[in-house]
C-alpha cells in the first residue's frame, strides 16, 4: 500500500516535471505562434498576448502578402525538392559503384570521398561564390540547386546499406542477365527505401533551412528562399509592423513542423546513423 502511494506520488511528480520542462522548451514557439494569431496591438499586450483569445489570421495574411511568402515558399519547395531528388540519385549511383563494382583505385577514391565530408560549407563559399558568378548563376535556381546535388554523407549512408545486402542477390540477378542500372533500380534501391527516406528527409530539411549559401548568391526578390525572405519582414525600426515577422515565421516553420511530426522516425534514424555507428 505504502509503496503504491509512493510510486503514485513519484509518477505524478515526474509528469509535473515533464510538463514544466515541455512548457519551457515550447515557450518560444508558443509565444511566437500566438502573437502571429493576434491583430497588431493585441500582439504586444503582454502577458495577455500569451492567452489564446481574440485569435485572427489577419497578421499571417498580411505577412503573406507583404512578404510575398507564397512565392518564396514555392521557391524553397522547388529548390529543396530538386536537391533532394538529385542527392538521392547521385548517392545511389556512387554508392552502387563503391558497394557492388570492383575497379582499380576504389579504396583510394572512397577515402577521398570521405575526406570531403570534413570540408564545411563555411570554407568553400568564398570560392564557390566566384564560381557561381563566373557561370552567371547569381540570382538563379541553378545557383541554389546544383552545388548541393552531391553529398558525401549520402554516398556513405547508402553504401552502408548496400554493403549489407546479400551478395547472392546481385549474383542471382547477374545470372539472369540483369544489368547494373536495372539491378539498382529494381532491387537495390527498393530494398534501401528506409535509408533513402531518411536521406531524403535530411536533405530536404537541410536545404530548406540553408542560410549562408543562399544569402551569398541571391540578392533579387525572384529567387529568394523563405529563409532569406524572413529577413525582409524584420523591421526593427517600424514597430507597428513588427508582428508581421511572427506571421512569416509561422508560415516558414509550419511545413517543416508538419514534416517533423509525420516523419519523426525517419529523421531520428538519419540523425543517429552518424552517431551510433560512429
Amino acid at each position: 500500500m505504502a509503496t503504491d502511494t509512493v510510486r503514485g506520488a513519484r509518477k505524478v511528480g515526474r509528469y509535473a516535471l515533464l510538463v514544466v520542462v515541455a512548457a519551457v522548451v515550447l515557450f518560444p514557439i508558443y509565444a511566437v505562434v500566438l502573437q502571429a494569431l493576434k491583430s497588431g496591438p493585441d500582439a504586444f499586450d503582454h502577458p495577455r498576448s500569451l492567452l489564446p483569445v481574440d485569435l485572427t489570421f489577419d497578421t499571417i495574411r498580411s505577412a503573406w502578402t507583404d512578404g510575398n511568402l507564397g512565392h518564396l515558399l514555392l521557391n524553397s519547395l522547388f529548390v529543396s525538392g530538386m536537391v533532394t531528388i538529385g542527392v538521392i540519385i547521385t548517392s545511389l549511383l556512387a554508392a552502387y559503384a563503391f558497394a557492388f563494382l570492383e575497379f582499380p583505385g576504389r579504396q583510394a577514391l572512397f577515402a577521398i570521398f570521405l575526406a570531403t565530408m570534413l570540408v564545411p560549407v563555411e570554407v568553400t563559399v568564398v570560392i564557390n561564390q566566384r564560381t557561381a558568378n563566373w557561370l552567371g548563376w547569381d540570382n538563379s535556381y541553378q545557383g541554389l540547386i546544383v552545388p548541393s546535388l552531391a553529398t558525401t554523407f549520402g554516398v556513405f549512408l547508402v553504401r552502408q546499406v548496400f554493403l549489407q545486402l546479400p551478395k547472392e542477390l546481385r549474383e542471382a540477378a547477374a545470372l539472369d542477365g540483369v544489368g547494373h542500372m536495372r539491378f539498382l533500380y529494381e532491387v537495390a534501391a527498393p530494398l534501401s527505401r528506409p535509408t533513402l527516406g531518411a536521406l531524403g528527409l535530411f536533405t530536404f530539411l537541410g536545404t530548406w533551412n540553408a542560410y549562408l549559401w543562399p544569402s551569398q548568391i541571391i540578392t533579387d526578390n525572384d529567387h529568394q528562399t523563405i529563409q532569406l525572405g524572413l529577413n525582409k519582414l524584420k523591421t526593427p525600426n517600424d514597430i507597428s509592423k513588427f508582428n508581421l515577422l511572427t506571421g512569416g515565421l509561422v508560415v516558414a516553420a509550419l511545413p517543416i513542423f508538419i514534416m517533423l511530426v509525420v516523419f519523426q522516425r525517419q529523421l531520428v534514424r538519419g540523425l543517429t546513423a552518424g552517431a551510433v555507428k560512429g
Binding site: N209, Q227, A252, I256, M259, L271
Partner: peptide
Amino acid sequence: TVATGVAV
C-alpha cells in the same frame, strides 16, 4: 527544435 533552421 531539430527541424527549425537557423533563420527561424
